[in-house]
């Protein structure tokens, strides 16, 4: 191969000799040699993701937010719920790095505690969505036919009930706590995921490797969990990443209605909504949580987009 390529540019009719027409032959051993390390599909996707600078920036920001939400409250000497009525609404200073709120609580600690709660709500809601969605969608896609039709109709009916209204109703009736908020957010959140899984499984189940496995006696469970779902993992992960910010957003909206986590616990959303009344006088009370929630949303969205491009390069536009 390489010999031929080198020769061509030099070859002109004048200096061709019979030597140039000798048969080189094919070295069969050479053609079997693996030129470079073989990459698994996941490695391949990772390489693609790593070369996407924007997505990596998103990943780094996500990691930083998670780490700070974990250690942030520990590196300050204040705690998130002790009132200090002598020091209310203080602007950021060397003692209170992000200032204090209307009850004199340290905003630095509260902001990171809020981030922790927001992340917990977002991640938990997204994970529950995935679990229900994968099982429900997997069954719909795998069995198809009548089962699919009925289950799909049910999902469609549930989906067309406006999601936030149901969430609000549930939280009006059951007192808002971390658990009920997560539950209320997942009540219809899983449907989208189940449709994505259904679509994937429907495409995958006609592949040869499924037939091969089935012909060797694999049962439905094995086919679904060992062959079909692992191959549908890409879109599942992407949807998961993109549904975390949605849940965080919804929680912020619920906080605004007074249906988010209750005092003294704070989420980023509830801190923003409690700062709204006096925020023109004390802008830092909104600034830090608002910045953090925006940054988190941004990071998750950018990373999710990058992940989609990396896992399914066909989709890239």
């Amino acid at each position: 191969m390489s010999v031929k390529n080198e020769l061509i540019p030099q070859a002109s009719a004048a200096n061709l000799t019979p030597e140039d027409f000798r048969q080189i032959g094919v070295d069969e051993k050479q053609s079997e040699v693996i030129q470079r390390e073989s990459l698994s599909a996941w490695r391949d996707s990772w390489e693609r993701l790593r070369s996407n600078k924007l997505a990596m920036a998103g990943l780094i920001v996500m990691a930083l937010v998670v780490i700070m939400a974990f250690i942030g409250p520990m590196i300050s000497k204040f705690d998130y719920q002790t009132n200090d009525l002598m020091n209310t609404n203080k602007p950021p200073n060397s003692v209170h790095w992000f200032g204090t709120d209307d009850l004199g609580r340290d905003m630095f600690v509260r902001t990171w505690m809020g981030a922790r709660i927001s992340l917990v709500v977002g991640l938990a809601a997204a994970l529950i969505d995935v679990m229900i969605g994968v099982i429900y969608g997997g069954i719909m896609g795998y069995f198809g036919g009548r089962v699919d039709e009925i289950m799909n109709k049910f999902a469609e009916i549930l989906y067309s009930i406006p999601y936030l209204l149901v969430t609000i109703l549930l939280l009006v009736v059951f007192e808002p706590s971390l658990g009920t908020i997560i539950l209320a957010l997942t009540i219809t959140g899983w449907i989208n995921m189940s449709w994505i899984v259904r679509g994937e499984i429907m495409q995958l189940k006609n592949r040869e490797y499924v037939l091969a496995s089935r012909s060797m006696g694999a049962g439905s469970g094995r086919l679904l969990f060992r062959h079909l779902l692992p191959n549908a993992m890409g879109p599942i992960i992407v949807t998961l990443t993109l549904s975390v910010p949605n849940a965080i957003f919804s929680e912020a909206f619920l906080s605004y209605l007074g249906l988010g986590v209750q005092e003294p616990v704070a989420s980023l959303g509830s801190m923003i909504s409690s700062s709204l009344s006096g925020w023109m006088l004390y802008p830092w009370r909104m600034l830090f949580p608002a910045l953090l929630i925006s940054l988190t949303m941004l990071a998750f969205n950018i990373f999710g987009d990058g992940l989609r491009d990396a896992l399914d390069p066909k989709l890239k536009k």
Binding site: S273, M280, M286, L298, N301
Partner: peptide, 16 residues
């Protein structure tokens, strides 16, 4: 991207 990331009540307060 910013429009998607920043909650509407933050946008509203900033504009105000």
């Amino acid at each position: 991207v910013l429009g998607i990331a920043v909650p509407s009540f933050v946008v509203a307060s900033m504009l105000q």
